[in-house]
Simulated scan of single mutants.
Amino acid sequence: MRKSIAASAVLSIFFSVLLTLICCLLAHQLITIMKIPEDISKEAYDYMFVVLLGTSATVFYNLISNMLRALGDSNMPLYFLVFSSILNIFLDLLFIVPFHMGIAGAAWATVISQLLSAFFCLLVGLKKYQVLHISRQNFDQLKSPLFSHLKIGFQMGFQMSVMCIGQLAMQAVVNSLGTYAVAGYTAASKADQVSVLVNNAMIAAISAYVSQNFGAGNKKRIRLGVRTCLIQTEALNLIMCLGILFLRHPIVELFLSNPTAEIYSYSDQYLTFVAPCYFLLGLLSIYRASVQSMGNGWAPFTACMIELVMRIATTLGLSAVLGYFSVCIASPLAWFGACALLISCYYRMMKKQVC
């Protein structure tokens, strides 16, 4: 356990420093690549540079909170996440209003709140769990743990990055359409992220359930659990779909003051097409987590590649013909392509012996 903690710490420090240096040095180039409109490029750079500078704070929090969850303590990371969110709001108001720090103030608020949350989470973890107390000898002969962590982490990290990488291509197309398109799409995507978070929560639940029953060789319980989780997930997706469609204008007003008719048009197009397709995201989430929890890492990885290629190809390949509509259909088509592989893979695996 201590060897694993040491390996995680080494990898986290290495990749935090590497990503911070690369991204901060290339921040101006990223602004250009993303085709951010000139009238908001300075604010975009100010926000992005600070957030990239604080990459280590995000990694630090995720590292500590996941260690606590692995030890069976899921409450403490939640408490500090709530603390971080409340502190973030307070610092936003403090830095932007009295301190007049502008958009950079919002970025500093995010970085500082995450860093403090991670620090307090670490203090509580060290006090509660003796196993988190590591010494210099735990860092000796780390070759095998480092390789093992990289092998598992690469596939999982890539899967988590697929949506973000695809959204970069989508954002680039939106940015080329002007400020109104950027505003409408950004507000709509904020609402869209709620569905992603809910589906991620169900992924965490079914992953633990399937992996435990896979280890016990209980195929019947796996089938029952996946079926039940699918019903729950799709019920939640239906509620979110209806809520977003009926409240799409008030949702935009949460993020923008006095939105114009053109901004509403862009946000309406995106939400009206994507929200009814949340059922595809639900299928993708549950079947991918289930297949991976039964020891199959390559099918989810291949599905991620399908998802990435379809999202980028749809956005960039059809933008010249369909314009903004190519952004609206990119995610649903990507979800459909990945589902086609994972659902068939799941049922093929269930026909075989679990153990």
Results as ranks from 00 to 15, higher is better:
D92Y: 09
G125I: 05
V198T: 10
M67S: 06
V196Y: 13
Y209V: 09
I165H: 03
A187V: 07
Q130S: 14
M202C: 14
V97P: 02
A183N: 11
G105M: 06
N175S: 11
I165M: 12
D192R: 02
V194P: 02
L146F: 03
S144V: 15
Q155V: 11
S144C: 02
G105Y: 00
F95H: 12
S144F: 08
T110W: 08
Q167S: 09
L87A: 14
V82P: 05
Q193R: 08
L150D: 02
L132M: 15
A106S: 15
T186S: 15
Q141I: 04
Q141E: 12
P77Q: 03
I206P: 02
L197K: 01
S176T: 03
V131T: 08
L71P: 00
F99L: 15
N88D: 05
Q114R: 15
P98S: 10
D73H: 09
C121L: 15
G178Y: 02
A181Q: 05
G184F: 07
K127S: 15
S189P: 05
F154N: 05
H149D: 00
Q130D: 13
L177E: 08
Q155D: 03
C164H: 10
S195M: 12
K127L: 13
Q130T: 11
P145K: 02
F95K: 11
G157W: 01
K127V: 00
A205N: 03
Q167V: 01
Y79N: 13
I89A: 12
V124C: 09
Y209H: 08
F139P: 05
S176P: 03
I152A: 13
H133D: 05
A169F: 14
F83Y: 13
Q159T: 06
S148F: 04
